[in-house]
């Protein structure tokens, strides 16, 4: 148990080392999650719009291509 404690204390620099890793984790996971959510939100919005205007669906693809 004490060896685990010495490990987590990081030679007295625990607050610096673990804060760095925690912050990196928060920023990267936050970026990934917000990106994924934004994509899903647009996907569903697009779906609703395309269902609302079924006749124009084909035409919209033409202008996109």
């Amino acid at each position: 148990m004490s060896s685990l404690a010495t490990y987590f204390s990081m030679g007295g620099y625990a607050s610096y080392v673990w804060t760095s890793y925690a912050l990196t984790a928060v920023v990267m996971v936050g970026l990934a999650v917000s990106t994924w959510r934004g994509m899903k939100a647009r996907e569903s919005e697009l779906k609703v719009l395309q269902d609302l205007t079924p006749g124009r669906r084909g035409r919209s693809k033409d202008t996109q291509g």
Binding site: A32, G38, M39, R42, E43, L49, Q50, R59, S60, T63
Partner: peptide, 23 residues
């Protein structure tokens, strides 16, 4: 990975804009 998802998202956003404009 994140870039690919974001670009996908942007493509959908521009499609949404195009449909809105057409409406």
């Amino acid at each position: 990975t994140v870039l690919l998802v974001r670009v996908r998202s942007e493509i959908m956003a521009s499609k949404i804009r195009a449909i809105r404009l057409m409406q």
